[in-house]
Design a protein around this nucleic acid. Structure first.
Lengths: 200, 200
DNA sequence: CCAAAACGTTAACTTAAGATAAGAATTTTT
DNA sequence: AAAAATTCTTATCTTAAGTTAACGTTTTGG
């Protein structure tokens, strides 16, 4: 797949949030950069400012923390989704999480510098504000559900819930990543799975 | 405190996000409504669409879920902060949480209808998009930290962390609310506190 | 001002999760 | 193809959390 094919996919995905006319699109695309990450390469790292957001054309990434020498998975993003260490990007503070490619991954990047330029360019400003609003709101909704699951559900319930709605993650991720994602250890998840099989 | 005093406070708080000129401010304020909640009155309720966001002039609110007949506190908002069942507001879906006044509370409301009107009013559209973006981004950062705390910290660590940064919540909220907020039961929090006292 | 409700702690018991280690199966790397 | 690393399960032991109930204290509301 070449860059122009990637742009077609990207434009289509963007249109869920904002629709550009041709003049706007030309300027917008001048602020994009293409890149690839080899499997295990880092998109963001602990203690470094993450100065970009990116759209995943193909591939996937894993967000993780290191705590007491242990690798704890917090989230995943797949093709057609966005990736960034958002708080770091938004605040210019060092990232608390690592983000690593799970497989060879093609990205379309918008650097903070380019985003700010677009937000200050009268031709694009309005639509970029709108785009920023809608995408932040989209992820806000995801987070709201995720926090609610930690408050109101047991680890087993969170797993059952993931079973019923999280096909892609379940099929593509090793179980110890999923365990961390659910807020428990891999050993615990294995036991939960055992319990569920026996109860069935 | 009368409405105009409340508006002064509100305008000042808003200016962290967006600054209105006088003409814009006049139109903007026409889209606001003032209201009060008596202690224990609801701002939002389970299964009802929350069709507004509000700024808390004075008072405070508690977000909670009911699960198996039990009341589980998820969050708090205090004066000078915003309150909404955001996902419900943004998506027009029924709210999953109740939001209740903890004390008599004065609010400045923006209904979804008014917000949409402003987003479609050329005089305000740009600044309202910007405002929406910045506020969603602000809460996104809060959520990012909160999710990370559930993934990477034990209940005791979350409590210690709250001790060091959450003065207002700790001083004003009963402990069983705080326990739920941390993702544990009131009995558990009481034991954690006991352990910490003994260890000291 | 009194009765009722709410609050925080403690205890006893049950259940589940964390830590660690071992081992088998699978995958990746060289 | 062999070696190394990863993955998942299982077992043991320890620790902590959930559940329920009781009790004294404080707060609230009529």
């Amino acid at each position: 797949m070449d860059s122009s094919a990637a742009l077609v996919i990207f434009r289509k995905a963007l249109e869920k949030f904002v629709v550009f006319n041709e003049a706007e699109w030309i300027v917008f695309t001048q602020h994009l950069t293409f890149s690839t990450l080899k499997k295990k390469q880092y998109f963001a790292a602990y203690d470094k400012v993450c100065d970009k957001v990116a759209f995943i054309v193909t591939g996937s990434v894993r967000y993780f923390h290191i705590k007491d020498g242990q690798d704890i998975t917090g989230y995943f993003s797949f093709e057609n989704e966005w990736v960034s260490s958002y708080k770091s990007y938004l605040t210019n503070q060092p990232s608390l999480t690592y983000i690593q490619a799970l497989e060879d991954t093609r990205l379309i990047n918008i650097s903070k510098k380019d985003m700010d330029a677009m937000l200050n360019n009268p031709l694009l400003a309005y639509k970029m504000e709108r785009f920023g609003r809608l995408i932040a709101e989209h992820y806000l909704c995801c987070y709201e559900d995720r926090v609610a699951s930690f408050i109101t559900q047991s680890p087993e319930e969170r797993y059952l819930n993931l079973l019923s709605t999280g096909r892609e993650i379940l099929q593509r991720m090793p179980q110890h990543y999923i365990a961390n994602f659910l807020g428990i250890t891999p050993v615990s998840l294995s036991r939960i799975r055992r319990r569920l099989i026996l109860a069935k």
